[in-house]
């Protein structure tokens, strides 16, 4: 997959996704509970969560496919449900299937017509989209002859067709091999570089970690974390080793965060703010504690994710 160079169309500077207080109940089961989701122009936001967390329901609600019980949502300044909201939006569904009686170009031709691409621009846009997803040379083949991975690439091509201002990808690499996954990550990065906003719904934490600026973590229909990835995944936990770990030292540390583990003269401290590390060092030294080591620990997104989801489960007494 190679890089698109032109800027996206159709956004006119409007906020790609602005959703507040989304609620949805199926029978007695609340699948979305006051979900807020904001994606700014050019941002790549990862929507994370375990199976059944409400990720796909959120995406479908944004695209007007699931009716909300409460909350407001707008795509590119238009309320969801209004078809014009989807004029500059590309979408790869989680459960993708394209008419197998058509060839790849015919599928893209239909989508080009649906988004109102002028007739003289369609052929070029279709060729570009096929090239970007690595399907050059296969566009004239029937979809029935495509592998699952090729069908997913075709779905990606429909999503990026016409350079939309917002692209929503629901598990975009589920059918791809490792090389294909890397290509999709590269494609997302280049979309971001040209100013396209991307909402990436994925359960592959590594994938999200590598391409997203922000993450929203859903669990049981609720947002349990929302913010820049750098805050979440960087060293917000520090290992502190002192000459002697006494009650006074613990009290000082407790002023900066939560002590998550303690062994001998070493404590693990989860900081509320990563910028507080120098202040923590000063406070300990000023109180006369011999600071042997203060090491910020890198926590992978997976660690954070497991912690958050685990905490939430404990909170519910499960």
């Amino acid at each position: 997959m190679s890089s698109p160079t032109e800027s996206p169309v159709g956004g006119d500077g409007a906020v790609p996704i602005a959703a507040t207080g989304l609620c949805k109940t199926y029978r007695d089961r609340k699948v979305l509970d006051q979900v807020d989701l904001h994606v700014g122009p050019g941002q790549v936001v990862g929507l994370l969560g375990p199976n059944g967390a409400g990720k796909t329901t959120t995406v479908k609600a944004l695209l007007g496919m699931v009716h909300l019980d409460e909350g407001t949502a707008a795509l590119l300044g238009h309320p969801v449900g209004d078809p014009t909201a989807r004029r500059a939006v590309g979408y790869l569904p989680e459960k993708f299937q394209y008419p197998d009686w058509l060839d790849g170009r015919q599928v893209l031709e239909a989508h080009a017509r649906l988004i109102g691409l002028p007739a003289d621009e369609r052929a070029g846009a279709i060729t570009d989209a096929l090239r970007l997803v690595g399907l050059s040379g296969r566009g004239d083949d029937r979809v029935s002859g495509y592998s699952k991975g090729m069908q997913q690439r075709l779905g990606l091509a429909t999503a990026i067709l016409g350079r939309p201002a917002l692209v929503i990808l629901d598990e975009p690499t589920s059918a791809l091999d490792p090389i294909g996954r890397r290509e999709v990550r590269d494609l997302i990065r280049t979309m971001r570089d040209r100013g396209t906003a991307v909402l990436l719904n994925s359960h592959l934490l590594g994938e999200v970690e590598q391409v997203c600026d922000q993450v929203v973590i859903l669990h049981r229909g609720r947002v349990i974390h929302s913010g820049p990835l750098v805050d979440l995944a960087a060293g917000v936990e520090v290992r502190v080793t002192l000459d002697r770990l006494d009650e006074d030292a613990l009290a000082v540390m407790a002023g900066f965060g939560r002590i998550t583990a303690r062994e001998s003269d070493t404590a693990l401290l989860a900081l509320d703010d990563v910028a507080a590390v120098p202040a923590l060092a000063s406070a300990l030294v000023m109180r006369g504690h011999g600071l042997q080591a203060l090491v910020p620990l890198h926590r992978s997104l997976e660690d954070v994710f497991v912690d958050l989801v685990g905490t939430d489960l404990e909170g519910e007494g499960l």
Partner: peptide, 14 residues
């Protein structure tokens, strides 16, 4: 059921 409809209705089509 097949998912074909979702790709189409994500377009500006009522």
């Amino acid at each position: 059921d097949s998912g074909r409809l979702h790709a189409i209705l994500a377009r500006p089509l009522s």
